[in-house]
Amino acid sequence: MKGLLIKDLRILMRQKNLLLYMVICGFFLCANGLDFTLGFLVMIGSMLGLNTVAYDMMDNGMAYLMTLPAGRKSYALEKYAVVFLFGFMTTAAAVVLRVGASLILRQPLEFGVFLSTCVGMFAAVSLLVAVMIPVNLKFGPEKGRIVLILMFAVVAGFSAVAAQAAEGLETGIVRLIEVLEQTSAVVLAGGGVLVWIVLMGISLLCTMHIMEKKEF
C-alpha cells in the first residue's frame, strides 16, 4: 500500500502548478477575509485525492496496478487514505494561510469560527467522497459524474417530498433541536465522529466489494 500511496503523492506533485495556484488564491481569499471560500480549498484538496482514481484508470492503467503486490482491498483502503491525507494537508495549508494572512495584513482572526468552518467543510466533503470513491470505481470517472448527478437529483427530490411530509411534524423537529441544544458539545462532537466513522466504514466496505468483483 505504501507504494500506491507514494504513486498518488507523486501524481499530485506532478500537478504542482495547480497547487501553486491554490496557495496564491488561498492567500488572496484570506486577505479578503473570505473564510468560507478558503474552506473550499479543503474540498479541492480532497477532490485532488479522488482524482487519482481517474489517473489510475487512464489508458487502462488499473490492470497493471492490480498486478502489483498490494491487493485489491489494499487499493481500496489506499484511496481513502490518499483522499483524507490530501484533505488534511489542504486543511493544514488553509489554517497556515489564514493565520499568516491575518499576521501579515494585521487582520482580526476569529480562529474558532474559521477552524469550525474548515472542519465542517472537511466533514461535508468526506461524506461526498464516501459516495464518490465507490461510484467512480464502479462506473469510472466519466459515468461516475453522471451517476452522482442522478443521485443528487434523487436525494433532492426525496428531501423535497420529506420536507412537505414533515410539515405536520414541526413540533417534533423543534423538540429535537431543543434536545440537541441541551446536549454538551463534547457529546455532540463524539456522536458526529461516530456517525462519520460508521458512514466511512460502510463506504469502505462497498468499495472493497466493488474492487473484489471488478475485472480489468
Binding site: K2, G3, L4, I6, K7, R10, I11, R14, Y55, D56, M58, D59, N60, G61, M62, A63, Y64, L68, P69, A70, F216
Partner: peptide
Amino acid sequence: DSGFNGILTIKDIIVIMKNTY
C-alpha cells in the same frame, strides 16, 4: 496496453518500485 500513468517520470517510478518490491 497498461502500465504506470504517463504523467510520472522514471525517477517517480523508481521511488514507487522501491516502496513496492
